[in-house]
Design a protein around this nucleic acid. Structure first.
Lengths: 238, 238
DNA sequence: GAGTGGTCTAGACCACTTC
DNA sequence: AAGTGGTCTAGACCACTCT
Protein backbone atom coordinates (compact mmCIF):
# COMPACT_ATOMS: atom_id res chain seq x y z
CA UNK A 1 0.00 0.00 0.00
CA UNK A 2 1.23 3.46 -0.84
CA UNK A 3 2.45 5.66 1.94
CA UNK A 4 -0.14 8.40 1.43
CA UNK A 5 -2.86 5.74 1.45
CA UNK A 6 -1.57 4.37 4.73
CA UNK A 7 -1.61 7.80 6.32
CA UNK A 8 -5.04 8.51 4.86
CA UNK A 9 -6.41 5.21 6.13
CA UNK A 10 -4.89 5.63 9.54
CA UNK A 11 -6.29 9.11 10.09
CA UNK A 12 -9.65 8.14 8.65
CA UNK A 13 -9.88 5.22 11.08
CA UNK A 14 -9.12 7.55 13.93
CA UNK A 15 -11.97 9.80 12.85
CA UNK A 16 -14.46 7.00 12.30
CA UNK A 17 -13.55 5.34 15.58
CA UNK A 18 -13.86 8.63 17.44
CA UNK A 19 -10.22 8.93 18.45
CA UNK A 20 -10.33 12.25 16.64
CA UNK A 21 -13.65 13.83 17.53
CA UNK A 22 -15.82 16.36 15.70
CA UNK A 23 -14.24 19.83 15.42
CA UNK A 24 -10.97 18.57 16.94
CA UNK A 25 -7.78 19.99 15.54
CA UNK A 26 -5.47 17.47 13.93
CA UNK A 27 -1.72 17.55 14.53
CA UNK A 28 0.11 20.03 12.28
CA UNK A 29 1.39 18.75 8.97
CA UNK A 30 4.90 19.20 10.25
CA UNK A 31 4.22 16.89 13.19
CA UNK A 32 2.44 14.37 11.00
CA UNK A 33 5.56 14.31 8.83
CA UNK A 34 7.57 13.35 11.89
CA UNK A 35 4.98 10.89 13.16
CA UNK A 36 4.76 9.04 9.85
CA UNK A 37 8.38 9.66 9.02
CA UNK A 38 7.60 11.15 5.65
CA UNK A 39 7.69 14.38 3.66
CA UNK A 40 5.25 17.24 3.57
CA UNK A 41 3.88 16.53 0.10
CA UNK A 42 2.94 13.02 1.13
CA UNK A 43 1.14 14.12 4.28
CA UNK A 44 -0.60 16.86 2.34
CA UNK A 45 -1.79 14.37 -0.22
CA UNK A 46 -3.21 12.07 2.47
CA UNK A 47 -5.03 14.99 4.10
CA UNK A 48 -6.36 16.21 0.77
CA UNK A 49 -8.01 12.84 0.23
CA UNK A 50 -9.83 13.33 3.52
CA UNK A 51 -10.87 16.82 2.46
CA UNK A 52 -12.27 15.47 -0.81
CA UNK A 53 -14.11 12.80 1.09
CA UNK A 54 -15.69 15.42 3.28
CA UNK A 55 -14.24 14.35 6.60
CA UNK A 56 -11.89 17.22 7.42
CA UNK A 57 -11.28 20.83 6.49
CA UNK A 58 -8.03 22.77 6.31
CA UNK A 59 -7.46 26.45 6.91
CA UNK A 60 -4.18 28.01 5.99
CA UNK A 61 -2.69 29.83 8.91
CA UNK A 62 -4.87 28.01 11.41
CA UNK A 63 -4.64 24.27 11.03
CA UNK A 64 -6.58 21.17 10.08
CA UNK A 65 -9.83 20.19 11.76
CA UNK A 66 -12.25 17.32 11.81
CA UNK A 67 -15.57 18.44 10.35
CA UNK A 68 -18.48 18.79 12.73
CA UNK A 69 -20.14 15.66 11.39
CA UNK A 70 -22.79 13.56 13.07
CA UNK A 71 -21.99 9.88 13.44
CA UNK A 72 -24.62 8.98 10.84
CA UNK A 73 -23.10 11.39 8.37
CA UNK A 74 -19.67 9.84 8.89
CA UNK A 75 -21.10 6.41 8.16
CA UNK A 76 -22.77 7.63 5.00
CA UNK A 77 -19.72 9.46 3.74
CA UNK A 78 -17.61 6.35 3.72
CA UNK A 79 -19.97 4.75 1.23
CA UNK A 80 -20.52 7.33 -1.47
CA UNK A 81 -18.80 8.19 -4.68
CA UNK A 82 -18.11 4.62 -5.59
CA UNK A 83 -18.03 3.78 -9.24
CA UNK A 84 -20.31 0.76 -9.32
CA UNK A 85 -22.78 -0.71 -11.70
CA UNK A 86 -26.33 -1.41 -10.61
CA UNK A 87 -25.47 -4.89 -9.38
CA UNK A 88 -22.59 -3.88 -7.11
CA UNK A 89 -24.38 -0.74 -5.93
CA UNK A 90 -27.43 -2.64 -4.78
CA UNK A 91 -25.90 -5.89 -3.58
CA UNK A 92 -25.13 -4.55 -0.12
CA UNK A 93 -26.16 -6.70 2.76
CA UNK A 94 -28.02 -9.77 1.61
CA UNK A 95 -29.70 -8.13 -1.34
CA UNK A 96 -30.19 -10.32 -4.35
CA UNK A 97 -29.98 -8.51 -7.68
CA UNK A 98 -31.50 -10.14 -10.75
CA UNK A 99 -32.58 -9.07 -14.21
CA UNK A 100 -35.16 -9.82 -16.87
CA UNK A 101 -33.99 -9.09 -20.40
CA UNK A 102 -36.68 -7.32 -22.41
CA UNK A 103 -34.60 -6.67 -25.49
CA UNK A 104 -31.13 -7.54 -26.69
CA UNK A 105 -30.16 -6.80 -30.24
CA UNK A 106 -27.62 -5.00 -32.39
CA UNK A 107 -28.63 -1.89 -34.29
CA UNK A 108 -27.21 1.28 -35.77
CA UNK A 109 -26.74 3.99 -33.18
CA UNK A 110 -29.46 6.61 -33.37
CA UNK A 111 -28.81 10.33 -33.18
CA UNK A 112 -28.80 10.49 -29.38
CA UNK A 113 -26.58 7.47 -28.86
CA UNK A 114 -24.15 8.63 -31.54
CA UNK A 115 -23.91 11.95 -29.80
CA UNK A 116 -23.54 10.58 -26.28
CA UNK A 117 -20.97 7.95 -27.18
CA UNK A 118 -19.26 10.13 -29.75
CA UNK A 119 -19.69 7.50 -32.46
CA UNK A 120 -19.44 7.83 -36.21
CA UNK A 121 -22.64 7.57 -38.27
CA UNK A 122 -23.45 3.98 -39.06
CA UNK A 123 -21.76 2.58 -35.94
CA UNK A 124 -23.38 -0.46 -34.45
CA UNK A 125 -24.30 -0.78 -30.80
CA UNK A 126 -25.82 -3.40 -28.59
CA UNK A 127 -29.27 -2.32 -27.58
CA UNK A 128 -30.08 -3.61 -24.12
CA UNK A 129 -33.31 -3.26 -22.23
CA UNK A 130 -33.70 -4.86 -18.83
CA UNK A 131 -35.80 -4.82 -15.71
CA UNK A 132 -33.63 -4.97 -12.61
CA UNK A 133 -34.95 -6.62 -9.49
CA UNK A 134 -33.76 -6.31 -5.92
CA UNK A 135 -34.88 -9.29 -3.85
CA UNK A 136 -37.33 -10.13 -6.62
CA UNK A 137 -38.97 -6.71 -6.39
CA UNK A 138 -38.77 -4.58 -9.56
CA UNK A 139 -36.48 -1.63 -8.84
CA UNK A 140 -35.43 -0.14 -12.15
CA UNK A 141 -35.85 -0.21 -15.91
CA UNK A 142 -32.54 0.10 -17.69
CA UNK A 143 -31.92 0.92 -21.32
CA UNK A 144 -28.33 0.85 -22.49
CA UNK A 145 -26.36 1.21 -25.69
CA UNK A 146 -22.85 -0.21 -25.92
CA UNK A 147 -20.60 -0.07 -29.00
CA UNK A 148 -20.18 -3.63 -30.28
CA UNK A 149 -16.44 -3.29 -30.82
CA UNK A 150 -15.94 -2.28 -27.19
CA UNK A 151 -17.76 -5.29 -25.75
CA UNK A 152 -17.03 -8.29 -27.96
CA UNK A 153 -18.83 -11.51 -27.18
CA UNK A 154 -21.60 -10.03 -25.07
CA UNK A 155 -24.32 -12.63 -24.59
CA UNK A 156 -27.74 -12.81 -23.03
CA UNK A 157 -26.42 -14.69 -20.03
CA UNK A 158 -24.20 -11.72 -19.12
CA UNK A 159 -27.23 -9.45 -19.18
CA UNK A 160 -29.01 -11.69 -16.75
CA UNK A 161 -26.23 -11.06 -14.31
CA UNK A 162 -23.83 -8.15 -14.28
CA UNK A 163 -22.55 -6.57 -17.50
CA UNK A 164 -19.91 -4.72 -15.51
CA UNK A 165 -18.63 -8.02 -14.19
CA UNK A 166 -18.22 -9.33 -17.73
CA UNK A 167 -16.54 -6.13 -18.89
CA UNK A 168 -14.13 -6.01 -15.99
CA UNK A 169 -13.40 -9.63 -15.18
CA UNK A 170 -13.77 -11.44 -18.49
CA UNK A 171 -12.76 -8.77 -20.99
CA UNK A 172 -10.22 -7.23 -18.63
CA UNK A 173 -11.35 -3.68 -19.40
CA UNK A 174 -10.93 -0.91 -16.87
CA UNK A 175 -13.81 1.38 -16.15
CA UNK A 176 -12.41 4.79 -15.35
CA UNK A 177 -15.30 7.15 -14.77
CA UNK A 178 -18.97 7.82 -15.22
CA UNK A 179 -20.90 11.01 -15.88
CA UNK A 180 -24.37 10.99 -14.38
CA UNK A 181 -27.39 13.23 -14.75
CA UNK A 182 -30.40 12.90 -12.47
CA UNK A 183 -33.89 14.03 -13.32
CA UNK A 184 -37.46 13.18 -12.37
CA UNK A 185 -40.57 12.25 -14.33
CA UNK A 186 -43.98 10.65 -14.20
CA UNK A 187 -44.22 6.97 -14.98
CA UNK A 188 -45.66 6.22 -18.41
CA UNK A 189 -47.61 3.04 -19.09
CA UNK A 190 -44.57 0.97 -19.92
CA UNK A 191 -42.62 2.05 -16.86
CA UNK A 192 -45.65 1.52 -14.66
CA UNK A 193 -46.15 -1.99 -15.97
CA UNK A 194 -42.57 -3.19 -15.58
CA UNK A 195 -41.87 -1.46 -12.29
CA UNK A 196 -45.23 -2.43 -10.83
CA UNK A 197 -46.25 1.11 -9.97
CA UNK A 198 -49.16 3.27 -11.03
CA UNK A 199 -49.09 5.43 -14.10
CA UNK A 200 -47.88 8.96 -13.17
CA UNK A 201 -46.10 7.72 -10.09
CA UNK A 202 -42.74 9.45 -9.59
CA UNK A 203 -39.71 7.95 -11.33
CA UNK A 204 -36.06 8.87 -10.89
CA UNK A 205 -34.15 9.01 -14.16
CA UNK A 206 -30.39 8.48 -14.17
CA UNK A 207 -28.69 9.15 -17.45
CA UNK A 208 -25.16 7.84 -17.49
CA UNK A 209 -22.16 7.73 -19.78
CA UNK A 210 -19.46 5.30 -18.71
CA UNK A 211 -15.85 5.61 -19.84
CA UNK A 212 -12.99 3.14 -20.02
CA UNK A 213 -9.43 4.01 -19.15
CA UNK A 214 -8.82 4.19 -22.88
CA UNK A 215 -10.93 7.33 -22.88
CA UNK A 216 -13.67 5.70 -24.95
CA UNK A 217 -17.27 5.76 -23.88
CA UNK A 218 -18.42 2.20 -23.40
CA UNK A 219 -22.02 2.76 -22.39
CA UNK A 220 -24.82 5.22 -22.61
CA UNK A 221 -27.55 4.20 -20.24
CA UNK A 222 -30.84 5.54 -18.98
CA UNK A 223 -32.09 4.02 -15.76
CA UNK A 224 -35.63 4.64 -14.58
CA UNK A 225 -35.89 3.83 -10.90
CA UNK A 226 -38.86 3.38 -8.64
CA UNK A 227 -38.98 6.15 -6.09
CA UNK A 228 -38.59 3.71 -3.22
CA UNK A 229 -35.39 2.20 -4.58
CA UNK A 230 -33.59 5.35 -5.60
CA UNK A 231 -31.11 7.56 -3.77
CA UNK A 232 -27.99 9.35 -4.97
CA UNK A 233 -25.41 11.20 -2.96
CA UNK A 234 -22.66 13.66 -3.74
CA UNK A 235 -20.15 15.82 -1.92
CA UNK A 236 -19.20 19.16 -3.36
CA UNK A 237 -16.07 20.96 -2.21
CA UNK A 238 -14.49 24.27 -2.96
CA UNK B 1 -2.82 32.71 -10.69
CA UNK B 2 -1.00 29.61 -9.56
CA UNK B 3 1.18 27.79 -12.02
CA UNK B 4 -0.78 24.55 -11.93
CA UNK B 5 -3.96 26.51 -12.52
CA UNK B 6 -2.43 28.21 -15.53
CA UNK B 7 -1.40 24.90 -17.03
CA UNK B 8 -4.79 23.39 -16.21
CA UNK B 9 -6.62 26.32 -17.78
CA UNK B 10 -4.43 26.33 -20.84
CA UNK B 11 -4.89 22.64 -21.57
CA UNK B 12 -8.59 22.81 -20.79
CA UNK B 13 -9.01 25.62 -23.27
CA UNK B 14 -7.24 23.58 -25.89
CA UNK B 15 -9.66 20.73 -25.30
CA UNK B 16 -12.77 22.89 -25.27
CA UNK B 17 -11.67 24.78 -28.38
CA UNK B 18 -10.90 21.55 -30.19
CA UNK B 19 -7.16 22.08 -30.50
CA UNK B 20 -6.83 18.79 -28.67
CA UNK B 21 -9.49 16.53 -30.13
CA UNK B 22 -11.32 13.53 -28.67
CA UNK B 23 -9.10 10.50 -28.02
CA UNK B 24 -5.98 12.51 -28.95
CA UNK B 25 -2.84 11.81 -26.95
CA UNK B 26 -1.50 14.77 -25.01
CA UNK B 27 2.22 15.54 -24.90
CA UNK B 28 4.10 13.49 -22.31
CA UNK B 29 4.42 14.96 -18.85
CA UNK B 30 8.14 15.33 -19.44
CA UNK B 31 7.48 17.48 -22.52
CA UNK B 32 4.83 19.50 -20.74
CA UNK B 33 7.40 20.23 -18.05
CA UNK B 34 9.66 21.68 -20.70
CA UNK B 35 6.86 23.51 -22.47
CA UNK B 36 5.62 25.19 -19.30
CA UNK B 37 9.07 25.38 -17.79
CA UNK B 38 8.05 23.69 -14.61
CA UNK B 39 8.49 20.53 -12.57
CA UNK B 40 6.79 17.18 -12.85
CA UNK B 41 4.68 17.49 -9.72
CA UNK B 42 3.18 20.73 -10.97
CA UNK B 43 2.29 19.32 -14.38
CA UNK B 44 0.88 16.21 -12.73
CA UNK B 45 -1.29 18.31 -10.50
CA UNK B 46 -2.67 20.28 -13.44
CA UNK B 47 -3.45 17.07 -15.32
CA UNK B 48 -5.07 15.51 -12.26
CA UNK B 49 -7.49 18.42 -12.11
CA UNK B 50 -8.52 17.60 -15.67
CA UNK B 51 -8.92 13.94 -14.74
CA UNK B 52 -11.18 14.87 -11.82
CA UNK B 53 -13.18 17.11 -14.08
CA UNK B 54 -13.70 14.24 -16.47
CA UNK B 55 -11.94 15.68 -19.51
CA UNK B 56 -8.89 13.43 -19.79
CA UNK B 57 -7.67 10.03 -18.69
CA UNK B 58 -4.17 8.87 -17.86
CA UNK B 59 -2.67 5.42 -18.25
CA UNK B 60 0.65 4.62 -16.70
CA UNK B 61 3.02 3.25 -19.26
CA UNK B 62 0.98 4.60 -22.17
CA UNK B 63 0.29 8.26 -21.84
CA UNK B 64 -2.44 10.83 -21.34
CA UNK B 65 -5.46 11.07 -23.61
CA UNK B 66 -8.43 13.33 -24.17
CA UNK B 67 -11.61 11.46 -23.32
CA UNK B 68 -13.87 10.50 -26.19
CA UNK B 69 -16.40 13.15 -25.26
CA UNK B 70 -19.10 14.62 -27.44
CA UNK B 71 -19.10 18.39 -27.76
CA UNK B 72 -22.29 18.62 -25.71
CA UNK B 73 -20.77 16.57 -22.93
CA UNK B 74 -17.74 18.87 -22.85
CA UNK B 75 -20.01 21.87 -22.47
CA UNK B 76 -21.91 20.25 -19.64
CA UNK B 77 -18.81 19.15 -17.81
CA UNK B 78 -17.51 22.65 -17.48
CA UNK B 79 -20.59 23.64 -15.51
CA UNK B 80 -21.03 20.96 -12.90
CA UNK B 81 -19.80 20.43 -9.39
CA UNK B 82 -20.09 24.03 -8.44
CA UNK B 83 -20.87 24.80 -4.85
CA UNK B 84 -23.75 27.21 -5.24
CA UNK B 85 -26.90 28.02 -3.41
CA UNK B 86 -30.23 27.93 -5.18
CA UNK B 87 -29.97 31.54 -6.29
CA UNK B 88 -26.58 31.25 -7.95
CA UNK B 89 -27.35 27.83 -9.38
CA UNK B 90 -30.49 29.03 -11.13
CA UNK B 91 -29.51 32.56 -12.07
CA UNK B 92 -27.85 31.51 -15.30
CA UNK B 93 -28.76 33.44 -18.35
CA UNK B 94 -31.46 35.99 -17.65
CA UNK B 95 -33.24 33.96 -15.03
CA UNK B 96 -34.77 35.90 -12.20
CA UNK B 97 -34.76 34.12 -8.85
CA UNK B 98 -37.17 35.30 -6.16
CA UNK B 99 -38.61 33.93 -2.95
CA UNK B 100 -41.72 34.01 -0.84
CA UNK B 101 -41.11 33.48 2.86
CA UNK B 102 -43.67 31.12 4.37
CA UNK B 103 -42.10 30.86 7.80
CA UNK B 104 -39.21 32.46 9.59
CA UNK B 105 -38.77 31.88 13.30
CA UNK B 106 -36.34 30.64 15.92
CA UNK B 107 -36.95 27.34 17.65
CA UNK B 108 -35.17 24.54 19.42
CA UNK B 109 -33.60 22.06 17.04
CA UNK B 110 -35.65 18.90 16.76
CA UNK B 111 -34.15 15.42 16.77
CA UNK B 112 -33.39 15.34 13.04
CA UNK B 113 -31.86 18.79 12.89
CA UNK B 114 -29.78 18.16 16.00
CA UNK B 115 -28.47 15.02 14.40
CA UNK B 116 -27.76 16.51 10.99
CA UNK B 117 -26.08 19.64 12.31
CA UNK B 118 -24.43 17.85 15.20
CA UNK B 119 -25.94 20.24 17.73
CA UNK B 120 -26.34 19.87 21.46
CA UNK B 121 -29.84 19.37 22.88
CA UNK B 122 -31.57 22.67 23.44
CA UNK B 123 -29.69 24.48 20.66
CA UNK B 124 -31.65 27.12 18.81
CA UNK B 125 -31.92 27.31 15.06
CA UNK B 126 -33.55 29.58 12.54
CA UNK B 127 -36.41 27.78 10.93
CA UNK B 128 -36.83 28.93 7.35
CA UNK B 129 -39.49 27.93 4.89
CA UNK B 130 -39.59 29.46 1.46
CA UNK B 131 -41.02 29.05 -2.00
CA UNK B 132 -38.38 29.73 -4.64
CA UNK B 133 -39.43 31.13 -8.01
CA UNK B 134 -37.56 31.17 -11.27
CA UNK B 135 -38.92 33.86 -13.57
CA UNK B 136 -41.98 34.08 -11.32
CA UNK B 137 -42.72 30.39 -11.80
CA UNK B 138 -42.64 28.29 -8.61
CA UNK B 139 -39.66 25.95 -8.81
CA UNK B 140 -38.94 24.64 -5.34
CA UNK B 141 -40.04 24.53 -1.73
CA UNK B 142 -37.16 24.93 0.64
CA UNK B 143 -37.04 24.17 4.34
CA UNK B 144 -33.85 25.01 6.18
CA UNK B 145 -32.49 25.03 9.69
CA UNK B 146 -29.49 27.19 10.55
CA UNK B 147 -27.87 27.51 14.00
CA UNK B 148 -28.52 31.04 15.26
CA UNK B 149 -24.96 31.53 16.49
CA UNK B 150 -23.59 30.74 13.04
CA UNK B 151 -25.73 33.28 11.23
CA UNK B 152 -26.13 36.32 13.47
CA UNK B 153 -28.42 39.07 12.30
CA UNK B 154 -30.35 37.05 9.75
CA UNK B 155 -33.44 38.99 8.70
CA UNK B 156 -36.46 38.43 6.53
CA UNK B 157 -35.06 40.63 3.79
CA UNK B 158 -32.11 38.26 3.39
CA UNK B 159 -34.49 35.37 2.91
CA UNK B 160 -36.25 37.20 0.15
CA UNK B 161 -32.99 37.29 -1.72
CA UNK B 162 -30.03 34.98 -1.22
CA UNK B 163 -29.06 33.64 2.20
CA UNK B 164 -25.74 32.49 0.77
CA UNK B 165 -25.02 36.01 -0.35
CA UNK B 166 -25.59 37.29 3.17
CA UNK B 167 -23.47 34.54 4.70
CA UNK B 168 -20.60 35.03 2.29
CA UNK B 169 -20.57 38.73 1.57
CA UNK B 170 -21.95 40.33 4.71
CA UNK B 171 -20.85 37.91 7.40
CA UNK B 172 -17.64 37.02 5.57
CA UNK B 173 -18.04 33.31 6.21
CA UNK B 174 -16.54 30.76 3.85
CA UNK B 175 -18.65 27.89 2.66
CA UNK B 176 -16.39 24.92 2.21
CA UNK B 177 -18.52 21.99 1.16
CA UNK B 178 -21.96 20.50 0.92
CA UNK B 179 -23.23 16.95 1.27
CA UNK B 180 -26.27 16.22 -0.84
CA UNK B 181 -28.72 13.36 -1.00
CA UNK B 182 -31.24 13.06 -3.81
CA UNK B 183 -34.49 11.16 -3.60
CA UNK B 184 -37.92 11.22 -5.22
CA UNK B 185 -41.48 11.38 -3.91
CA UNK B 186 -45.09 12.17 -4.72
CA UNK B 187 -46.29 15.69 -4.07
CA UNK B 188 -48.46 16.02 -1.01
CA UNK B 189 -51.17 18.68 -0.77
CA UNK B 190 -48.88 21.35 0.59
CA UNK B 191 -46.20 20.80 -2.04
CA UNK B 192 -48.79 20.68 -4.77
CA UNK B 193 -50.31 23.97 -3.65
CA UNK B 194 -47.09 25.95 -3.39
CA UNK B 195 -45.41 24.49 -6.45
CA UNK B 196 -48.56 24.70 -8.53
CA UNK B 197 -48.57 21.06 -9.51
CA UNK B 198 -51.08 18.27 -8.97
CA UNK B 199 -51.10 16.12 -5.91
CA UNK B 200 -48.99 12.98 -6.51
CA UNK B 201 -46.97 14.66 -9.23
CA UNK B 202 -43.28 13.73 -9.04
CA UNK B 203 -41.06 15.82 -6.79
CA UNK B 204 -37.27 15.75 -6.50
CA UNK B 205 -36.02 15.97 -2.94
CA UNK B 206 -32.54 17.32 -2.22
CA UNK B 207 -31.37 16.97 1.34
CA UNK B 208 -28.31 19.05 2.00
CA UNK B 209 -25.89 19.76 4.80
CA UNK B 210 -23.65 22.75 4.22
CA UNK B 211 -20.33 23.23 5.98
CA UNK B 212 -18.21 26.30 6.66
CA UNK B 213 -14.43 26.27 6.48
CA UNK B 214 -14.50 26.15 10.25
CA UNK B 215 -15.82 22.62 9.93
CA UNK B 216 -19.19 23.54 11.42
CA UNK B 217 -22.41 22.68 9.70
CA UNK B 218 -24.23 25.91 8.94
CA UNK B 219 -27.36 24.58 7.28
CA UNK B 220 -29.52 21.54 7.03
CA UNK B 221 -31.93 21.99 4.18
CA UNK B 222 -34.54 19.97 2.34
CA UNK B 223 -35.48 21.25 -1.08
CA UNK B 224 -38.51 19.89 -2.89
CA UNK B 225 -38.24 20.70 -6.57
CA UNK B 226 -40.76 20.54 -9.37
CA UNK B 227 -39.77 17.86 -11.84
CA UNK B 228 -39.41 20.40 -14.62
CA UNK B 229 -36.95 22.56 -12.72
CA UNK B 230 -34.71 19.87 -11.33
CA UNK B 231 -31.49 18.29 -12.59
CA UNK B 232 -28.34 17.22 -10.80
CA UNK B 233 -25.07 16.04 -12.25
CA UNK B 234 -22.05 14.24 -10.93
CA UNK B 235 -18.83 12.73 -12.19
CA UNK B 236 -17.42 9.66 -10.53
CA UNK B 237 -13.82 8.64 -11.04
CA UNK B 238 -11.70 5.74 -9.96
C1' DG C 1 6.69 37.91 14.15
C1' DA C 2 5.79 33.18 14.60
C1' DG C 3 3.50 29.56 12.83
C1' DT C 4 0.07 27.47 9.83
C1' DG C 5 -0.96 25.23 5.30
C1' DG C 6 0.06 26.00 -0.08
C1' DT C 7 3.07 25.93 -3.99
C1' DC C 8 7.00 24.53 -6.40
C1' DT C 9 11.42 22.40 -7.40
C1' DA C 10 14.95 18.90 -9.16
C1' DG C 11 15.65 14.64 -8.96
C1' DA C 12 15.45 9.61 -7.32
C1' DC C 13 13.17 5.54 -7.69
C1' DC C 14 8.94 2.56 -8.67
C1' DA C 15 5.06 0.31 -11.47
C1' DC C 16 3.29 -0.45 -15.60
C1' DT C 17 2.88 -0.74 -20.88
C1' DT C 18 4.74 -1.40 -25.12
C1' DC C 19 8.05 -2.89 -28.30
C1' DA D 1 14.85 -2.42 -22.95
C1' DA D 2 12.89 1.91 -23.23
C1' DG D 3 9.58 4.95 -22.00
C1' DT D 4 5.27 6.18 -19.73
C1' DG D 5 2.96 8.04 -15.52
C1' DG D 6 3.12 7.41 -10.04
C1' DT D 7 5.30 8.08 -5.64
C1' DC D 8 8.31 10.27 -2.58
C1' DT D 9 11.87 13.31 -0.86
C1' DA D 10 14.15 17.48 1.41
C1' DG D 11 13.88 21.80 1.27
C1' DA D 12 12.82 26.66 -0.49
C1' DC D 13 9.67 30.14 -0.59
C1' DC D 14 4.77 32.05 -0.48
C1' DA D 15 0.06 33.29 1.53
C1' DC D 16 -2.56 33.50 5.25
C1' DT D 17 -3.98 33.73 10.45
C1' DC D 18 -3.32 34.96 14.95
C1' DT D 19 -1.08 37.45 18.49
Amino acid sequence: MKKYEEIYTDIKNKIVSGEYTATEQLPFEKDLCDAYNTSKMTVKRALDLLVDEGLIIKRRGSGTFVKDLSQKEIERITQINQLNGFTAAHSKGDNKVTSKVLAFDVRQADETVMDKLNLKPGSFVYNIYRVRYINDKPAALEKAAMPIESVPGLEKKHLENSIYHYVKKELGLNIQSAHRLFTVKKADDEEARYLNVDRNDPIAVTEQITYLDTGHAIEYGVTKSRADSFAAETIISN
